[in-house]
């Protein structure tokens, strides 16, 4: 009864006739393991890079806090390295003024662009405008600097009756630079809204403008704030373009066309020749920049978590 069914010709049982499954070869196993580890190494290099920069900058910049003092460094009103005065408040204010002005100009421009692309433009127009906006993100910042220097500065010099080096020129240059960041992220936020709410709004008798201003923008609010903060990160960290148009005078903001300086541009200006405590103070400024951008990343992560919860 228990005799397995045998093929009449070969006399083999079904189990014996079935093709055997191959065993995993040693080389395949090794290749898989090696690749897994390779990717792990890639990830570690990125993390180690950030950690090393932080340790290095912290180590080189720390003495400025211990020797000059946190208060004198952060709140000191004068940056005169030759006199051993290392107060970065004017530079910090400069960075803030430049960033906030750029956001104030760039955000409406970028959100308007995003609304146009996502809600108003026809397919054909979008096919032209969107790549153009994305291209803005790919232009090297030194080119923006040149544009600011050669095109904007003379115009602003005429308008303000000054040399044209100063916050106003920097605002305009930076505003254009942050448009792609804010516009593409805002467009994503608008596109990820539930598709039915546009129809619902139109069916309620709303016009396009009412639908955009009363339903779509409020619904995409969190995504837009997210986009603005990322744009802020870009504006605060931007160095080259700002350096070329801002005038680089480490003094408090005192007029649209009057030279000021920012943390980033001052570091680049001074680094080639700075020595001793001056050099340490530049690293101290780098620590501040590092903390600011970490804070911005933290806010973005927090906002994204809010968005997921919604």
């Amino acid at each position: 009864m228990n005799e397995p069914i045998r093929d009449k010709e070969s006399g083999l049982s079904n189990a014996e006739r079935a093709p055997k499954l191959k065993l995993v070869s040693q080389s395949t196993y090794l290749k898989e393991a090696a690749l897994k580890n390779l990717f792990l190494v890639c990830a570690c290099v990125a993390v180690a890079g950030v950690a090393l920069i932080f340790v290095f900058v912290g180590w080189r910049g720390w003495p400025v806090f211990s020797e000059i003092g946190v208060g004198k460094f952060l709140l000191g009103k004068e940056w005169l390295p030759t006199e051993q005065l290392f107060g970065i408040l004017p530079l910090f204010v400069g960075s803030l003024v430049v960033t906030i002005g750029a956001l104030a100009l760039g955000t409406p421009l970028a959100v308007g662009t995003a609304v146009f692309l996502s809600e108003i433009a026809s397919h054909r127009v979008r096919a032209i405008v969107r790549p153009a906006v994305e291209l803005l993100a790919g232009v090297p910042s030194v080119i923006y600097g040149f544009f600011g220097l050669l095109v904007l500065r003379p115009i602003i010099a005429k308008l303000t009756g000054s040399l044209g080096f100063g916050p106003l020129t920097a605002w305009i240059v930076l505003a254009i630079m942050i448009v792609p960041t804010i516009a593409t992220l805002t467009e994503d936020a608008l596109r990820s809204l539930p598709p039915g709410i546009r129809e619902a709004s139109y069916a309620m008798g709303a016009t396009t403008w009412q639908t955009i201003s009363r339903v779509l923008l409020p619904a995409a609010k969190i995504g837009i704030v997210d986009a603005i903060i990322l744009g802020m990160g870009r504006a605060i960290g931007e160095t080259m373009a700002v350096l070329m148009v801002v005038g680089n005078a480490p003094v408090f903001f005192h007029g649209l066309g009057q030279p000021i300086s920012t943390l980033t541009s001052q570091i680049v200006m001074d680094m080639p020749y700075a020595a001793g405590m001056h050099r340490t103070a530049l690293f101290g400024m780098a620590i501040i920049l590092f903390l600011v951008s970490m804070g911005l990343v933290g806010i973005v992560r927090f906002i994204q978590r809010l968005r997921e919860e919604q």
Partner: peptide, 9 residues
Amino acid sequence: FQQPNPFPM
């Protein structure tokens, strides 16, 4: 509509 589409408010 077929899909309930309240506004996110």
